[in-house]
Design a protein around this nucleic acid. Structure first.
Length: 563
RNA sequence: GCGCCCGUAGUUCAAUGGAUAGAACACCAGCCUUCUAAGCUGAUUACGUAGGUUCGAUUCCUACCGGGCGUACCA
């Protein structure tokens, strides 16, 4: 149930015309507002006169009386004050009844949507750029699910590209060194890849050797292929570890090595159909006609390029899953590539909705990340630093806690922080990742939300169970009304976030909700208030706690009960 | 050259075409014998430039300036 939506619908029914009902810039002005410029124009009336007329109509309507206190004409605007006894009862009982389901809606009608994200590589490092992708993909999946879509999260791992040959070429030369580096074999392959890129540089002989290594892998037999198989599993297990730590669930992982053969068959068919052509020794898609330039598919030496696998992958998705929509979450630098790929899929006859959800990349204060220059912050390094930092802070604040408890809370805080930092910025913006800035624990951070949640849990625990009947009409303080209105807006925040595939709507909402609660907390006593009021206030606090928890869940963050 | 994205406070970011452009950080000054001070309260400072559309533009359009990215054998 969406209380605000219901109220807006009731008002519109009385008005008899369609109009956007918004919120006034300040709550002193009212709870809802209508701007009448457009309506007045279409009716040939003065908006100020019309505002007076309509506000009277609202005030005199008997049906609206239980939900609306009054409507006020202010210039060309109408400001509506809601009846809080009604609003509080509706919203708070809704939360109490639905708990973790509060805020959900069914607008998705169980439509199947596949979301591809976390397109990592084997034989390579996992860095903070991947973390933005993974956090975004997971949150978008959860947003779609909560809005009633059948969201299918999948990932596509490139285990068969030239990078695998680079890593293996270097690994073969320094096997003992790399095996001694760390117990984590997936991690050490990442280090090895970076070293390999540096070692190869512009060295022609090295490039030739890498090329030979690649051919050996592609032959799918012999010692190098066996090593590829073995090391591939190291990376895959490492990725599984990452997903487990970050609590990311994927329904399916596709691998390039498993689709490439099908891709080559598709390419052959497309050449026959004339969709792909030979040019300068290579096979290309000439998309100049659509203003999309040229996309190379097969190199002039006959080896496959990335689109070959992507074509086969798309075909498999549509064949094996019942989906109406397929979303690729890949950074903005590949926009043109995806436009080209989607055009080819369209020419192949696919009618499903296919879209590329872009986000800007993550850079460092020292500049763009690159394996070549070694300017890179890896997942493992960041996580270790984040946990250490969180543990130090927690230990300072809670000296009486056991090491085990500190470790647990620090890990949860570290992961919350990393995800939240990646999600709170609009996806169109580059994130300049400053590790000290990101690991901050004050202000607009995950820790602020977690702290507020833990504070609420602590109050509820301390208060104990109450038997009195709840009277929502006792919540009369201004700060209480602000909180109730905020809670009421949660369902439409989800709808907006889903529509725009934008988790930052949720981060922003949760931060504001917590600010409102902390303001309340500092001004109004909960446990020390008279019995009947205390019951209502505890109910309100509980509802805020539940909503924070639900919102964090959408962001892929586990709410912490005690920090 | 062409295409896409971004230019808002010292910094990092907000603002479905609507009322007084909001936060956070940093800085300074306060608030714990009282529900978790990882919190709260208070003060300073901003829409890149020039036009256009509109009753109304930070938001839409055009040009320019500044930054980033992409643009046939990387992914």
């Amino acid at each position: 149930m969406n209380t605000i939506y219901k109220i807006k619908t009731e008002i519109k029914k009385v008005l008899g015309f369609e109009v956007d009902i918004n919120y006034p810039p300040s709550s002193d002005l009212g709870d809802l507002s209508l701007a009448l410029f457009a309506i007045a124009k279409s009716k040939g009336k003065n908006p100020i006169e019309l505002a007076k007329e309509i506000s009277q109509k609202i005030n005199q309507n008997k049906k609206l009386r239980p939900i609306i206190q009054k409507a006020e004409a202010v210039g060309p605007y109408i400001n509506i004050f809601l009846n809080y006894a009604h609003l509080s009862a509706q919203v708070l009982s809704d939360i109490k009844k639905n708990k973790s389901k509060y805020g959900q809606n069914k607008s998705g009608k169980k439509i199947g949507v596949m979301i591809e994200f976390s397109n990592g590589n084997t034989h390579k490092e996992v860095h903070i750029g991947h973390l933005r992708n993974i956090s975004l993909g997971d949150a978008v999946t959860k947003l779609l699910s909560t809005s009633g879509y059948k969201a299918i999260p999948v990932s596509y791992i490139n285990d068969f590209g030239i990078h695998t040959a680079k890593t293996l070429w270097h690994f073969l030369k320094n096997t003992k060194y790399y095996e001694s580096l760390s117990d984590n074999k997936g991690y050490l392959l990442g280090v090895c890849y970076r070293d390999a890129v540096k070692a190869i540089g512009e060295d022609e002989k090295a490039k030739e050797e890498v090329s030979k290594t690649m051919k050996a892998i592609e032959s799918r037999q012999g010692e190098i292929y066996k090593l590829w198989q073995k090391t591939r599993l190291w990376s895959i297990n490492y990725l599984k570890e990452v997903y487990q730590t970050l609590d990311i669930k994927l329904q399916k992982t596709f691998y390039e090595s498993e689709v490439i053969a099908d891709g080559l068959k598709i390419v052959e068919q497309l050449i026959k159909k004339g969709v792909l052509v030979k040019s300068q020794g290579a096979i290309i898609a000439d998309l100049e006609l659509y203003n999309l330039g040229v996309l190379p598919i097969i190199r002039s030496d006959g080896t496959a390029l990335y689109p070959v696998a992507d074509l086969a992958l798309a075909a498999r998705k549509f064949k094996e899953y019942k989906i109406a929509e397929s979303i690729y979450i890949v950074d903005v630098r590949q926009s043109l590539y995806f436009k080209q790929l989607f055009k080819i899929l369209e020419l192949m006859g696919y009618k499903q909705r296919i879209s590329h959800l872009t986000y800007d990349f993550v850079t460092l204060p020292s500049g763009m990340m690159s394996s070549r220059s070694g300017n890179i912050v890896t997942y493992s390094d960041l996580l270790i630093e984040a946990i250490e930092h969180a543990a130090t802070e927690t230990k300072a604040k809670r000296p009486e806690w056991s090491d085990k408890k500190i470790k647990q809370v620090a890990t949860d805080l570290a992961i919350s922080t990393i995800k939240f930092e990646m999600l709170k910025v609009s996806s169109q913006k580059t994130i300049t990742f400053d590790i000290r800035e990101a690991l901050r624990f004050e202000g607009y951070t995950a820790t602020y939300l977690q702290y507020t949640h833990a504070r609420i849990m602590s109050i509820i625990k301390k208060a104990g169970k109450k038997k009195d009947k709840i009277d929502y009409a006792l919540l009369l303080e201004t700060t209480e009304k602000t909180l109730i209105m905020k809670l009421a807006k949660y369902p439409e925040t989800i709808i907006r976030g889903t529509k725009n595939y934008d988790p930052s709507e949720i981060t922003k909402y949760l931060f504001e909700l917590c600010q409102d609660f902390n303001d309340y907390y500092h001004n109004i006593p909960i446990i020390k208030s008279p019995d009947k009021i205390q019951v209502a206030r505890l109910e309100l606090a509980g509802a805020v706690g539940q909503t924070i928890k639900n919102g964090l869940e959408l962001l892929g963050i586990k709410a912490i009960n005690e920090i």
